[in-house]
Design a protein around this nucleic acid. Sequence first.
DNA 1: CGGATTTGACCAGCGC
DNA 2: GCGCTGGTCAAATCCG
Length: 311
Amino acid sequence: MESAWVGTTLDLNINSFHRTNEAVKRESDGKMVDSDVRVPVKQEAGVLVEELNRVSAENKKLTEMLTVLCEHYTSLQNKYKELVSKNSENEAAAASSKKRKAAECEDYSSTMIGFTESSCSDENSCKKPKECSTTKISTSCVLTDPSDNSLIVRDGYQWRKYGQKVTRDNPSPRAYFKCSFAPSCPVKKKVQRSAEDPSILVATYQGEHNHAQAALSSLNPINGGATNNPRSAAVSSSSSAPAKSSAPVVTLDLMKPDGWDNDTKKPTQQVDRPAIQQILVQQMAASLTKDPKFTAALAAAISGEVLDQKW
DNA sequence: CGGATTTGACCAGCGC
DNA sequence: GCGCTGGTCAAATCCG
């Protein structure tokens, strides 16, 4: 697959243009420097207007970057969908005689980095009458440290582990969780390492939460919002639920927000594009503020700006 | 001490 | 009916 990632590097030198002009102006008429305290109001207004224009331009630039990012995201989403549909066709042909189709229809996506969402109401997708009627099943993959043995997926909800099994087709154990935030919440979660890539945790969610999220908001109401996908335009390290490992967990969650697709059956969960962009901007901002290089550069830029303006 | 986790036992569905 | 497998239960254990 092509790696057409959008560069998210912010050009912090935009400020330097402003500063340089100011410096040149001051240098050109040296006597003005001494009278900086008595800057005319007009000049100050001009500086402010210039600053406003600069911020507007920067905002425009970021908006364009975000638009490109969203386009890449949707194209990747489509490519992934094609891949999944191709795989499911192949699996269906190869495993038509296999028993326990239901389990396989959930698990076939576990070999891929990404997300699938399926409903058991789909024809031939599930044969268990218990779950087929209304249970919503979704899967997400979480990238973790392979050396970390814990099967913990921090998704913003509170889970209680009630079982663990070693399954036939995967040497790593599968953990079973129930949502413990609300006693009546029917949501269950299965977490298992991918057989092909032990660094990937595959979390399968069954049902929908009937309560508000315990912590943190998210693009994904089921998966929660503790972590996000660096390959899908958002990066952050999780800090919500307690974990045995101190290493940050990066979630690969290519799931689109509910309502992104036209064929969604839940109009109440539809999210319009500006809202998505706003969330993306927030997450990008959050990730940027966690980058020490960015904060250092920002601090340098701000201090430079403050010094230039001589408060 | 109470809540969370572990883990062996048990149950249900499915194929033979 | 039997065996295999996934899913769940619940007592034991752990931990803050």
